[in-house]
Design a protein around this nucleic acid. Sequence first.
RNA 1: GGAGAGAUGGCUGAGUGGUUUAAGGCGCACGCCUGGAAAGCGUGAUUACCCAAAAGGUAACGGGGGUUCGAAUCCCCCUCUCUCCGCCA
Length: 481
Amino acid sequence: MDIFEKRSLIRAAITRRGHGPPSLNHGTNAPSPLAPDQLLFHNALMLDMRLVRENAAGVQERLATRGAGDEGKIDELLKWDEKRRTLLAQAETLKSQRNRVSKEIGALMAQKKAPEAEAKKAETRQIGDQITQLDKDVAEIEKSRDAILLTIPNLPHESVAIGRSAEDNPVMRHWGEKAQFDFEPKNHIDICERLKLIDFARGAKLSGSGFLLYTNWGARLERALIQYLLDLHTTSHGFTEVSPPYIIGRHCMVGVGQFPKFVDQAYAVQEGMDAGTMGQLYLLPTAEAPVANIHREEILREDQLPIYYCAYSPCFRAEAGAAGVGTRGMIRVHQFDKVELIKIVMPEDGYVELEKMVANAETVLQQLGLHYHVIMLCTGDMGFASAKTYDIEVWAPGQKQYLEVSSCSNCEDFQARRMNLRYKTATGENRFPHILNGSGTALARLFVALIETHQQPDGSIKIPAALQTYLRAEVIKVDSE
RNA sequence: GGAGAGAUGGCUGAGUGGUUUAAGGCGCACGCCUGGAAAGCGUGAUUACCCAAAAGGUAACGGGGGUUCGAAUCCCCCUCUCUCCGCCA
């Protein structure tokens, strides 16, 4: 069987978007899964349109710091916005007229004055035609406007370092030191094969390259880590554990800003297996997607905030275009486990909460005795939805490189707008909360750093004390059964 | 998977084409009354958009479309919930 046959079988049930047959439900003219009008389910905006109107120059300036050229979209956005408001005002005036005349008709009918009523009907009918046209125009304009808005990333916070790429990310701090060995440390692939923690060959046999088969103590270590992480964040850091669906609707992906930009990175469930108005279903790329959306389209009470959620889930990523870059081993895989942290907080608390979240993720590495540093992503390297992001990179001695195991972001109200999540203040005002997400932490790379850091001269792995009660072992040895 | 019944405001619940400007009840807030309460009486209370603001206007009765001068109400599609049957870990 060649590689293409293998891949087509893998994707028989799970296909990337756009490559499957049209669904029966949709007929042969199935709409593009990403038509703008399919992406929005309400009128909330990604960037605050009022802010864009009132301070276009400021918005453009912030966007420009990302170096992606999005600031060029603002002028067109404003053009659509102005046109929309003009037409909307016209339509509403006409509707007001029609409502008034309709009432008069009702009154005439009640008085059995049919001829007069008929005359007014003709008048109203004509107004109605104009309204229909205006409504159509406005809808078109909103479609154009939203198509642009959906592709504009969040504005970076003022405190974020200006830069173009990962090389410009400032290191904020580090903890511990690079582990020293009086022997040549092995990399995780060798360790896994020797200790039979992962069966790379059979994982690939099952699902293709980039899929892992954890075996025996490897599987147990993975499970122990999940359990340890959830326990830590729930009991010590005050998070409420949730366990979300792993298959989620398109609207959730749009809500957190994964779509439309990263649609190629998601595994789509077979076309036709969609959820009606929720649209096409996808395997989650991160638990952030379902968990941040838990309260979408709700109005929370201020006293419900802050909300802290943590969730374990596997994460599925197509990693299209990433082939060949560190693909061997566990560093970049199509499916990995992660414990995710999500916070929904009042805007004034957003940045304090971000620092706390990073500290919560750092605790993991400290307790496991792993050297790491925290970097701030510069404007040019930040994710689409984020206003400010810290990455935690753990040292992997076998790789001789730092691996990203956590990315903690404050998305401010960017996601809340997309999903129309608000909270009501004590004074009765509705506001968008800040939504934060952070890995607490990603498992596959944590696994790598753990076994590479704690490997012993005899090839065994010493288990850190914090993990021993979960794994029920102090060491993993070659002859461990 | 099959059959049926539903979805109305904070909750409950009326409303089968025109003072619905969504009744009534419960709960809520404020006021009157009271020594204080209860009861009673009165007032208020959704969301979004347009408008610099105010005034005003428009829209929303699960979601979308249609009929009509006019739709919570009639028609079509979808989603969700409940009941029964079937299947299933």
